[in-house]
């Protein structure tokens, strides 16, 4: 359904744009129909940038994104509008997603005005109420309120209901439950998983591994803009190969396992430009000179399992 082909995003920084900052480097992966793929990374890994590039909110520096075979960079006016009919997003901060001076249901009215101007107001209200019930909200309680009168969980469901009003096929969910409370976040997560049965594909962007395991079939691990490992969720979690993935696995606080004493990475600042992005922090015994010199390519090592590390020998 959605395919990223060698996508990069480079920002020019500094006065006169002299320096370059590579936020996303040569990322390729695809998302099939009815598939939930999670994009896992820490802050600054470029995971949100990828989500925004898919939503055409940020331009792509090089590479292409294809949606159902069509390059999304070429979409204009009506083509782009049609794209948004099928591809939608929900962001991390529910309160910032609403214009604070308007009522929350304005997000529905915008969809009405922009996409379905011909539908009568009455029919539209019925559609909105149906959509709200689908996401588990009571229209009588949540409609006609200002954003600050609703809870974070309600606001996020609102945005999912908004997306459902369109002929949505693909949803970018960018950290949508990280700001919600424990007792309500699981319901939003379940709702997202249920959408799959409606034929949706989802890109689930998160830093929380257990959430990713709960909901997705496939996981992509990002480190400083580079894909270091990707594949079927079970393989990533139980047969992790990249030292970074392994480190994440042992660092995530779990309720069924205690933290192990981890090997402190020897901080090695001798890295030359062009080496492996993880070189500095890598504590693998396989670490060698090659790692410092050239970036390891992402290679397939099993069905549905890719890793970018010289240390791995099949």
């Amino acid at each position: 359904m959605l395919k990223l082909d060698s996508v990069s995003k480079i920002y020019k920084i500094g006065t006169f744009g002299g320096k370059e900052l590579c936020a996303v480097n040569n990322v390729s992966f695809d998302i099939k129909d009815r598939e939930v793929v999670s994009l896992i990374g820490e802050s600054g890994s470029g995971k949100s940038t990828i989500g925004k590039m898919i939503l055409r909110l940020i331009s792509v520096t090089s590479g292409h994104i294809f949606f159902n075979g069509e390059n999304i960079a070429s979409l204009k006016n009506n083509g782009l509008k049609n794209y948004y009919r099928k591809v939608q997003g929900v962001f991390q901060d529910p309160f910032s997603s609403y214009n604070p001076i308007f009522k929350a249901d304005r997000v529905f009215r915008i969809i009405h005005d922009e996409f379905y101007p011909d539908v009568s107001g009455k029919d539209w209200n019925i559609k909105v109420e149906d959509s709200l019930r689908t996401v588990g909200l009571n229209p009588d309680i949540v409609l006609n309120k200002f954003p600050h009168q609703l809870s974070g969980g309600q606001l996020q469901r609102f945005l999912i209901a908004r997306a459902l009003l369109l002929d949505i096929q693909f949803l970018v969910a960018d950290e949508i439950i990280s700001m919600l409370d424990a007792s309500t976040r699981i319901d939003v997560l379940n709702l997202l998983a249920d959408l799959k049965s409606r034929g949706l594909s989802i890109l689930f962007i998160t830093h929380d591994l257990s959430l990713s395991y709960y909901i997705s079939e496939k996981a992509v691990i990002l480190y400083r803009g580079n894909v270091v490992e990707m594949g079927a969720t079970d393989k990533i979690f139980y047969q992790s190969l990249h030292p970074y993935t392994k480190m994440l696995m042992v660092s995530v606080p779990r309720l069924d396992m205690k933290w192990q004493e981890n090997v402190e990475a020897k901080i090695d600042r001798t890295m030359q430009p062009g080496g492996c992005v993880y070189y500095e922090r890598c504590s693998a015994i396989e670490k060698n000179e090659l790692c410092a010199k050239s970036p390891p390519p992402l290679v397939q090592i099993a069905e549905d399992h890719f890793v970018a590390c010289f240390g791995y020998k099949p």
Binding site: L80, F91, S96, N99, I110, I111
Partner: peptide, 26 residues
């Protein structure tokens, strides 16, 4: 850079409309 502007953009709103109906009222 607030999310509601991004939200308006992925609602297919035209730029001038976003400026006048989302940003200016604030």
């Amino acid at each position: 850079v607030r999310d509601f502007v991004d939200m308006a953009r992925i609602s297919g709103m035209k730029s001038y409309k976003i400026i006048f109906s989302e940003i200016a009222p604030n």
